[in-house]
Design a protein around this nucleic acid. Structure first.
Lengths: 245, 245
DNA sequence: CGACAGATTGACTTGATTCAAAAAGTGTGG
DNA sequence: CCACACTTTTTGAATCAAGTCAATCTGTCG
């Protein structure tokens, strides 16, 4: 259902429904200039579970996610994994200033991307000066959200972590039904496995599963088949997430 | 000893000895233009322990640290604290795109800063276009280092965390004696308390203290009066930091 | 020197992990 | 549509790394 969109479509759509937590090119490019941008890129399909960016590999290209989702992670030599983030529609990946990619990116379900050679970004920026401001804003907001994750990983309990995760996933773009803030139920469809959630929150799958169990027992959520979660009290979850007792 | 330097001095020095982990204005401004930059700023002295940026306060100004150091942190309602980073000579603070500061910044020992009104940054960027590239590069490298800290907080053991911290503190700018990489001893002077280290690493002071103890017993470090630490085997500490068994 | 904050050490507790097993999903082919 | 095989998730019991509480110890500084 979400396949076949071009970069152009995504750029246009994105402005409307997502206030962008990651690097977007939206708003930086005038409509009549879009074709030039699209000409620089090539489209790529990535099947579920396949990685398209490898940590440490030479960073030749950057990508815009045009459908599906992806997980971004780092590995330790013994296999311990930390997911640094999930990318979604319109997110920019692989923009690191360094010579090599800083993380591995793997499709969560089938995904499509637009790929640009790194060399063309300077040309693009020269042509669309607002692009640079835009990138900077987005990098800045990414910094803020990473800082929030430091608090999560460094100081929060398992319950607080999972509550934070659920609240975060309740952003408009991920919702299936309901509205945030309201006390009425809000249903999320989580494309990632329990293992992914655990590696995102710095926990084990067992703890994630047990914590889902606690929330169920306390009447805060209902779960249908592991990937569909309904938040029954967004407010209360949000309080837990922020350590409000 | 480190007092009384102007922004100009710092900008000049910085290029030489530090490959910059945070936002620097160095390299972006020609020498003859420096006075104009300096004219926009005002100098501030902050006594030890005083904060000069408050999380959540309206972000009117940004700062360049011109002497001393600072800790940047977030708090939870019940007082749990996560230090998101330490700032040092030449670091740029308070550049967040948002309307409010994302963290509290507090001087570690006496510090001096140059303050710029936020309104002047656009003017500066217009005048010194390379400044924007520079800021972007620095933001990007900050992103990479924050990602490394996610792995540290989410997946590393206490020993690995402290080893990572010591290796990180062994950057040129913090060294008192010795060279990194070599097997010869390398002495660090740590301006932060055990509590600060604990809040940086997501541990308690007791665990930090005990872990220092382990490293002493294993002959990896010697400690003199809590703030002076000598790394006896940088390589081995680096292996521990990266989980190499 | 005395006093106080900060750091260390020890004994005990605990939240989360580990190991193990059962249960619930998911997909495939007949 | 169901039966089978496989994977993922959940649940249970035991363990452990790090936290908590409490008592020294150490360094610093007036």
């Amino acid at each position: 259902m979400e396949t076949g969109r071009t970069l152009m479509d995504v750029v246009k759509e994105r402005c409307e429904h997502c206030s962008g937590r990651s690097l977007s090119i939206c708003n930086a490019i005038d409509d009549e200039d879009l074709p030039a941008l699209v000409a620089e890129s090539s489209r790529i399909s990535v099947p579920s579970g396949r990685s398209f960016i490898e940590e440490g590999a030479p960073a030749h290209d950057f990508y815009v996610l045009t459908s599906g989702r992806a997980k971004l992670f780092n590995l330790m030599p013994d296999g311990r994994r930390q997911i640094v983030g999930f990318a979604e529609l319109g997110d920019f990946l692989g923009l690191a200033a360094s010579e090599t990619y800083a993380f591995t990116a793997e499709a969560l379900g089938d995904a499509t991307l637009c790929r640009f050679p790194h060399s063309s970004i300077d040309r693009l920026i020269e042509r669309f000066p607002r692009l640079r401001c835009r990138l900077q804003e987005e990098a800045s907001s990414e910094l803020v959200s990473l800082q929030a994750r430091l608090m999560l990983l460094g100081r929060k309990t398992a319950k607080e972590r999972l509550a934070s995760f659920l609240v975060e996933q309740a952003r408009p773009c991920c919702r299936v039904g309901g509205e945030a803030g309201a006390e009425r139920p809000l249903t999320l469809s989580l494309p990632m496995s329990r293992t992914d959630i655990a590696d995102y929150l710095g926990l084990t799958i067992e703890t994630v599963s047990r914590t889902f169990g606690h929330f169920k027992k306390e009447g805060l959520i209902t779960v249908k088949g592991a990937s569909s979660v309904t938040l029954l009290s967004f407010k209360e979850l949000s309080n837990i997430a922020n350590g409000v007792r």
